[in-house]
Design a protein around this nucleic acid. Structure first.
Length: 564
RNA sequence: UGGGGCGUCGUCAAGCGGUAAGACACAAGAUUUUGGUUCUUGCAUACGGAGGUUCGAAUCCUCCCGCCCCAGCCA
């Protein structure tokens, strides 16, 4: 069993805290977590870290994990975002059963809790406007001042708050505040706002409400209502924990979850903040939320990343409190690892160079049986047609090859994958541009299975496709979205760091005929080129492929060194 | 200059007083009909710095330095 493998049961400071709670029977041995996104953007790989953590812990401890939309601010929250969250968390492989909740479903209860706080003399209606409240709040080094409305009677507060709810007052004219401590060194505790007036349409409650609860008030109570035991959130909420506890303590609620904060994910060569992702989408720097260059789950999914790869990535990066910038090569490694195992191998020529085999019969067509996976024969094979005219990759031929290049070149012999040895006899160039347009070769009929009876060796094996039989295809090559590891570093606008070559569209690719029926979303390894998946833009006869990741390429490294 | 948090290899990250795991990256080599995969090997005399406690400190204490978060009627 996997219990013997410690690495299969992740351990981190959060799980240590939970272990301790179980030992001390703090929550009756129960573990209940929740993933609480605000539906105001598409979920990204950073959310995946939280999803994996919360659902992972629940599964590991035999507990539950709820999915809760933290929708307490009508502006920006939409059903489209809710759907994208549901869709993507499900795709990642997690199941919340029937426990899909919405903070907006708690509005009535939250309102009652607010009334109770007023009755306990712990909340008051404040008539200061936003600017005034800021002034009264003080600064990091100076204490704040108490609002002149702080000592209203309970009756007046109750009356005013009810009238706030009925829409008697204009937006921004009054708020409900918690009465805590205007001199607290923790600014979060300086009489924080609990409710604001916003006469805005909410995507779920419509115009039933014109006052909306703030995060600090709503979140702890939502957790409590759901009987959460461990409320896991990111580091920036650490300052808010005393407030989280204050509401629950002041209301004397039985269910008092423990808030635990961990460091959010940062990934090199991309950005993971909703605000900036929205900017990329709305500024049309990418083709939408599911653009394969985006770090959104929708983007990664369309790019060809598998849920398994993403989950594995989330496990490998660990959980701690250090601000970190994870190297994107780790994410890439995780997809390659998964796809190497499961992607069928297939032949595809991205930048075709025409090859005529001068000694191959004009009308002969042979079929080679090509296995789908070198290490997994159970994946089977398919027949690939071979004929006199082929296409090979442009990069696999060089008229004047450098020392370490051992692919095709004048006078050189290579092996065609699954086929014959091929020798270059002649190079045909465009008289105007001197560009190589065609290569004439001969093949050795004795080498049909890829070996020479005389035992002679060949340095390279290249991929190919029969000109007459191949399918035309569009292939989209993606590279990192940004040119620098940390686009947010420095004073420059992160947009300036966008990689102008993050997308290269190749329209004259040729892929083997077996791909004609490939379903959108299916993964392949184009041999020697990388992992690709069928894009949703494909139509019958016009397949479109996205490059998920290149293969590791030691030749590219050698070539790169040669340039320097 | 208030409060909260964090500082271990290029990047993450174990370590919880007994003499620095692992992963990615990188480098070298072996195998190979993908310059892929796989395999082997190398990669922190050192844990932000300085003192101190101790037979022994990345782990305990003190001071210092650096980075992140908080002054939304966002979450």
């Amino acid at each position: 069993m996997s219990q013997n493998d410690p690495s299969s049961q992740p351990s981190d400071f959060i799980r240590e805290i939970i272990d301790e709670h179980i030992r001390s029977n703090r929550f009756g041995g129960r573990v209940a977590t929740r993933f609480p996104p605000e539906p105001n953007g598409y979920p990204h790989i950073g959310h995946a870290k939280s999803v994996c953590l919360n659902f992972g812990i629940a599964a590991q401890y035999g507990g539950t994990c709820n999915l809760r939309m933290d929708d307490t601010d009508p502006s920006g929250e939409t059903l489209e975002y809710v759907e994208s969250i549901i869709d993507n968390v499900k795709w990642l492989g997690f199941d919340w059963g029937d426990r899909l909740y919405y903070a907006s479903d708690y509005y009535d209860q939250l309102y009652e809790f607010a009334l109770e706080l007023i009755r306990r003399g712990k909340a008051y209606v404040c008539d200061l406007n936003a600017d005034r409240i800021r002034e009264y709040r003080g600064t990091l080094t100076e204490p704040g001042r108490e609002s002149p409305y702080r000592d209203r009677s309970i009756e007046e507060n109750l009356d005013l708050f009810r009238r706030m709810r009925t829409g008697e007052f204009a937006d921004g004219t009054r708020v409900l505040r918690a009465k805590i401590d205007m001199a607290s060194p923790n600014i979060t505790l300086r009489d924080p706002v609990m409710y604001r007036i916003k006469k805005a349409f909410h995507y779920r409650t419509g115009d039933r409400w014109c006052i909306y609860p703030m995060y600090d008030f709503a979140h702890c109570l939502s957790d409590s209502l759901e009987n959460i035991t461990h409320s896991i959130c990111t580091l920036e909420f650490e300052n808010n924990r005393p407030l989280y506890d204050w509401f629950l303590d002041t209301l004397e609620l039985e269910s008092h979850p423990r808030q635990i904060e961990f460091a959010r994910l940062n990934l090199s060569y991309t950005v993971l903040s909703k605000r900036r992702l929205i900017e990329l989408v709305e500024g049309h720097y990418v083709r939408g939320w599911d653009d394969p260059r985006m770090p959104t789950l929708a983007g990664l999914r369309r790019r060809g990343y598998t849920p398994e790869a993403i989950r594995n990535f989330c496990e490998r990066i660990g959980v701690a409190k250090n601000d970190s910038l994870i190297d994107i090569t780790l994410l890439e490694h995780c997809v390659r690892e998964d796809l190497n195992d499961r992607a069928p191998r297939v032949l595809a020529v991205l930048q075709p160079l025409r090859v005529v085999i001068v000694n191959y019969p004009e009308d002969l067509v042979e079929e080679f049986d090509c296995p789908y996976h070198p290490q997994r024969p159970e994946m089977g094979s398919r027949k690939v047609p071979f004929s006199r005219v082929l296409y090979i990759e442009r990069d696999d031929f060089l008229e004047n090859p450098p020392k370490k290049f051992f692919r095709l070149a004048p006078g050189r012999e290579v092996r065609l994958r699954y086929g014959y040895f091929l020798k270059c006899l002649d190079v045909i160039k465009d008289p105007e541009t001197a560009e190589v347009v065609e290569v004439h070769c001969s093949y050795d009929p004795e080498t049909r299975s890829g070996f020479a009876p005389d035992g002679r060796k060949v340095d390279a094996t290249i991929h190919w496709v029969s000109a007459e039989h191949a399918l035309h295809a569009e292939v989209r090559l993606y590279d990192r979205l940004f040119q620098v590891a940390n686009p947010l570093e420095g004073k420059a606008d992160f947009i300036e760091h966008l990689n102008p070559k993050s997308l290269e569209i190749l329209k004259s690719c040729r892929v083997e005929a077996s791909l004609a029926t490939a379903a959108p979303g299916s993964w392949f390894q184009f041999e020697r080129m990388g992992y690709f998946c069928v894009d949703k833009d494909s139509s019958p006869g016009n397949p479109v492929f996205n490059r998920t990741a290149t293969l590791r390429d030691s030749w590219a490294k050698i070539a790169e060194k040669g340039k320097k």
